[in-house]
Write a protein that binds this DNA or RNA. Structure first.
Lengths: 200, 200
DNA sequence: CACCTACTTGGACGCCCGTCCATGAATCCG
DNA sequence: CGGATTCATGGACGGGCGTCCAAGTAGGTG
């Protein structure tokens, strides 16, 4: 009801869309349901975004990916450092099953769209990739040596593991299993990194 | 048009649904579109399945997961054996991007449903898990020793990696990247397995 | 042959969808 | 102050959705 700039209104509508889509699924996030959630009349949505597809794209671009703080890991043994890093990552991702589910709904939905939509899905994954790659590079620098694995490939692998674990966790809702699988991967990685150090 | 038993008709309808959903997305697989694809009148779908949800559940249960033939890996060095195994797995999964996309659409869709739907999603993942776990156990037996990682956890981890890689591959369509990431994981695993052997 | 079960057929029902648009109100600016 | 721009509002439109059902038809059984 209060008069807002279109820009501020867009932020409100994106937030409302996230709320609805997280709670009830992306399919339930209809224009009417979003307008109701945001407390605005129906026409406002199309006034601000022009189309529902543009709104969904804006929602995908608004999704924030976890951050990794490498400073916490200094002076820890390799295996403990990696386990800690994954645990921190998981605490951010694993807090809300439905939120993570929405990310996969967005990725699959956008993957069926036109080139512009697919580009947005790509960016969504690349944001996570960039965060992980930055953390890996910072960690390698702290370690004072190069890793026995290409950091860019390792970052892709870490994203794959967390995404895969998240997907299974969404489906079977088993927190402990997700934790154990990620910790196992962290320890595998630690073995390789330490063995690489011995060889060097 | 030809008179078929309801059971045979169900198979036809499931196949038609898969065709439509693979090609155009799960959202595009409406009852009308499915009936058209199968060449049957609209009412037939509900006669055979009672509801669209039951049809989608049947579709999810019909999805076959890759098989892994461990016999091929005998007498290969560990790293080559694992790389070969992942490559074989990928040749089955990575042949059709849209088919893999449908699996994720089904998983997210079913995860939003009631308990029965979520159970079906769980089975879909568990089929892949069972296949991988069986292969791991067979491989460990061929190796003649126990692995340094719990096979059930390792199987979950392998599923996570392949699912995560598939997801990224669906989004960015980069075959080479998917291959490289999986091969890197295979080699990481080989290092750990071989180092576990040395310790033993 | 008659009968009953099983399958077929296509239209009708009510609902919700995304989009559009005409009108009105607020705000900004020369 | 007055005109122009920007935002607000809610009803209307055409279409597609899942579901239901009454009538028709084939096949097997007594």
């Amino acid at each position: 009801m209060p008069r807002l700039s279109a820009e501020d209104r867009r932020v409100e509508l994106i937030d409302a869309t996230v709320r609805v889509a997280v709670a009830e699924g992306l399919d339930a996030a209809t224009v009417r349901r979003i307008a109701q959630e945001a407390g605005v009349p129906l026409g406002t949505v199309h006034y601000c975004f022009g189309s529902k597809a543009a709104l969904i794209s804006a929602v995908a671009d608004s999704i924030e990916q976890p951050t990794i703080d490498v400073a916490l890991l200094e002076s820890l043994p390799t295996d403990q450092a990696l386990v800690t890093a994954f645990r921190s990552y998981w605490e951010q991702i694993g807090s809300d099953r439905r939120r993570q589910l929405l990310i996969y709904e967005l990725l699959t939905h956008l993957s069926r769209g036109d080139d512009a939509s697919r580009e947005i899905a790509r960016r969504l994954i690349d944001r996570a990739y960039g965060a992980v790659l930055g953390a890996i590079r910072a960690y390698a620098q702290d370690l004072g040596r190069t890793l026995p694995v290409d950091p860019t490939v390792l970052a892709r692998l870490v994203i794959a593991v967390t995404d895969g674990v998240s997907l299974a966790w969404i489906v079977n809702n088993d927190d402990d299993q997700a934790q154990v699988v990620m910790e196992t991967f962290a320890r595998l990685l630690a073995v390789v990194i330490d063995s690489g150090a011995e060889q060097a």
